[in-house]
Amino acid sequence: MPHFTMEYSANLDGAVDFADLCRLVHKVILDTGLFELGAVRVRAIRCEAYAVADLLAENGFIDMSFRVGKGRSEEDRKRTGDAIFAAVTDFLKPQFATPHFALTLEIREIDPVLSWKKNAIHPRLRAQGA
């Protein structure tokens, strides 16, 4: 159950192709071999209201949160985070060329007792052998 969410400042519209960035993160997550295709969710959420650092209008951010189910080692989670952060950092080279951009990533484990799920995608993909 990997859920990857990017919250981003609205001033990045037009500067970052978030559809491409979501597809890149999706690929990196699957390339780890730790997650089943039918479980992967990657999304970007635009933040209209924000206040960053010294409040310059040029200041922008992407805050990435990756929630994963229990059962993966700390080493596997670290390796996954390193791979995602490296790929996203490379994708965002133009933003890092300015003194107005911040990127963060946090990985959290989902408590299985306090998590409910129902997924109709898994059976379809499993039947296809994906």
Rank of each mutant, 00 (worst) to 15 (best):
A10I: 08
D63K: 07
V42L: 09
G71S: 11
E36K: 10
R67I: 03
V25R: 12
E7P: 04
E7D: 09
A57L: 12
D13C: 05
R72Y: 08
Y50S: 02
K78I: 07
A83G: 03
I84P: 01
L24Y: 06
E36I: 02
R67C: 07
R67S: 07
G14K: 01
F18H: 09
R72C: 06
T80E: 06
A57S: 15
A44V: 02
R43F: 00
V40L: 06
L21C: 12
N59W: 02
M64W: 12
N11H: 02
A57M: 07
T80H: 00
G33C: 10
A57H: 10
D76A: 12
E58H: 03
A15T: 05
A19P: 01
L24H: 07
V16C: 00
K78S: 08
D54P: 08
I45H: 09
R72I: 09
F35P: 04
D54R: 14
R67P: 00
D82M: 09
H26L: 04
E75K: 07
G38V: 00
Y8I: 01
G81D: 01
E75G: 03
V68E: 10
S73N: 05
S73D: 01
Y8Q: 01
G33K: 04
R79N: 15
K78C: 03
V25I: 14
S9N: 06
A19F: 01
A15G: 08
V16Y: 05
H26K: 07
C22S: 15
V52H: 13
R72K: 13
R72V: 09
L24K: 13
F66S: 01
E7N: 13
F18A: 11
M6N: 05
R46N: 00
E75N: 02
S65E: 14
A83W: 07
R43Q: 03
Y50K: 13
D20V: 10
F85M: 06
K27Q: 14
K78V: 11
A51I: 13
G33F: 09
L56A: 15
F35E: 03
Y8F: 15
F85H: 05
G81V: 03
E75Y: 01
V16T: 01
G60S: 15
A19R: 14
C47Q: 09
F85Q: 04
A39T: 00
I84Y: 06
L12S: 00
E75M: 04
M6P: 02
R43T: 02
L34V: 06
L34N: 15
F85N: 07
L55F: 14
V16H: 05
T32I: 13
L30C: 11
F35L: 02
E58P: 05
A10N: 13
V28W: 08
D31S: 06
A53I: 04
V68A: 14
K27M: 08
V40E: 01
Y8S: 02
E58K: 04
T80L: 10
E48K: 13
V40S: 00
D17Q: 00
V68T: 09
V25S: 13
R41H: 01
T32S: 15
D82P: 07
A44N: 06
E7R: 10
D82V: 02
L21N: 05
V16Q: 03
A44G: 05
A57R: 10
